[in-house]
Design a protein around this nucleic acid. Structure first.
Length: 201
DNA sequence: CACCCGATTATCT
DNA sequence: GATAATCGGGTGT
């Protein structure tokens, strides 16, 4: 009997050292763990978008490395957290093949699993389905801010990601990205069909 | 449900 | 000075 039980296995760095688009699709169903000094929050990834830096005008990395986007050019399996619209933080996982200089996967929505009461305290909403159904909402619910930029998500720590059974490709929708003004045509957004925690549209 | 807009600031032109 | 990988509240159909 071996490893049928994938519970509590942290996704290895090799998972993120693949094509950014494949990583985005395969992250659907994986589990984000946020450890706040022993308080464990857990959430299942249900929506992502791929931003393959070199070939993607919508990627923050497209026009080269700057201080803000430097994490996207760093080691895979690290977090890229950026501040946007003067208010929100968004979470990405650095993912790319070794030959590519930059790339990341935006986590757009998650399904709360553990620590839901704590997530409510971090948010000013009363409906469960509004708790984590957007990139700026989930960072607020999980208390993810600028300090999380560059951190390694392949080791136990304040933020890491667990493996989980693969979600059938029949259940993963492949559609265009949202919230961008360039390169809108690519089918680089993925979500679990029927899940009520996906972001609007 | 479909737009419209204000909030609020780092980054780039 | 404009833009931005957003959100939540508002108004109108």
């Amino acid at each position: 009997m071996k490893n049928n039980n994938q519970k509590n296995i942290i996704l290895p760095r090799s998972f993120y050292a693949r094509d950014t688009i494949e990583v985005a699709r395969d992250l659907i169903g994986k589990i984000i763990i946020r450890d706040i000094d022993g308080i464990i929050l857990a959430a299942r990834i249900v929506e992502t978008e791929a931003y393959p830096g070199k070939i993607d005008p919508a990627s923050h990395a497209y026009r080269g490395k700057t201080e803000r986007n430097s994490a996207l050019f760093g080691p895979v399996g690290h977090a890229y957290v950026y501040f946007t619209y003067g208010i929100h933080y968004c979470l990405n996982f650095v993912s790319r093949v070794p030959e590519s200089p930059a790339g990341g996967v935006l986590i757009r929505a998650v399904e709360p699993l553990l620590g839901i009461d704590h997530m409510y305290k971090n948010r000013k909403v009363q409906n469960l389905h509004l708790l984590t159904n957007g990139p700026g909402k989930l960072t607020q619910a999980l208390e993810i801010g600028p300090d999380f930029n560059h951190i390694d998500i392949t080791k136990k720590g304040p933020l890491y990601v667990l493996d989980a059974p693969e979600v059938s490709h029949e259940i993963v929708a492949v559609v265009t990205r949202i919230g961008i003004s360039q390169a809108k045509e690519h089918l680089w957004r993925f979500y679990e069909k029927g899940n009520k925690f996906i972001s609007k549209k």
